[in-house]
Design a binder for these strands. Structure first.
Lengths: 118, 118
DNA sequence: TTCGTATATGCCTTGACATGTATATGCCAT
DNA sequence: ATGGCATATACATGTCAAGGCATATACGAA
């Protein structure tokens, strides 16, 4: 579990990241929003924290978790090598994007779809 | 193993994708270049093919594999929601910095968006 | 046909990881 | 201090994927 790729391979962890993109959340808010048990939420947050995807601050008995951009930027950097390749295939790509209703995945937790404009 | 995230979680598969970004390769070239056994290469290529990352054409007894952009573009689309976060974050930081030194005129140079530390 | 090459697949073992239950730790209020 | 809430962790369990090895399939050449 060292690479950022393995971290985001888990759907619940991606859901947590998507949830935190708007604002910071406590563990309880996360577990309720995403309908996971408390230990599950804590464990995934631990993984995300150790990988640098999130950080937490203490607020009384709660921990507030918020997003950190660096690991996701690392992912973005890996993707960069393929962008030049895409430009060669824009036509096919455009057709695909028109077909694709770009949401996160088909995971159960609440998701706020990021609509895509043409 | 449905999601693109799980597909690229495997280091050998990422290596294959990076290899194919330049040009198409046969299975034999891939296994030699990346030092994996032939069944391992074939199995990873099968996963990549079924997920739409690569496609193959037949050349005599060989199969030539080449990259397809769509799944990687899907990954890029997922990342988009966080790029907005980076921008907002940097903007907020800049506003904060602007507020902190409101003594002089406010023509600050643009900041690089890739740095942030706690 | 038979042989040799290139690639795919089936079986099996191993190990990693996600989850549930239970319990521990930490913090506030009384 | 005691109780209650919020979060973290330990342990046991089930699942699943990756790799090794053997074998199957496909194709070309002779």
């Amino acid at each position: 579990m060292e690479s950022v790729f393995e971290i985001i391979a888990e759907p619940n962890r991606r859901a947590i990241l998507s949830l935190l993109v708007s604002r910071e959340h406590s563990v309880g808010e996360i577990e309720r929003q995403l309908r996971m048990t408390q230990p599950t939420a804590s464990k995934h947050l631990r993984v995300l924290r150790q990988a640098g995807f999130v950080e937490s601050t203490v607020d009384a008995q709660r921990r507030l978790y918020r997003l950190k951009p660096e690991p996701l930027q690392e992912l973005d950097a890996w993707l960069a090598q393929f962008r030049r390749f895409w430009s060669v295939h824009v036509d096919a790509l455009e057709r695909h994007l028109d077909r694709m209703d770009m949401n996160t995945d088909k995971d159960q937790p609440k998701k706020k779809p990021t609509r895509r404009k043409k």
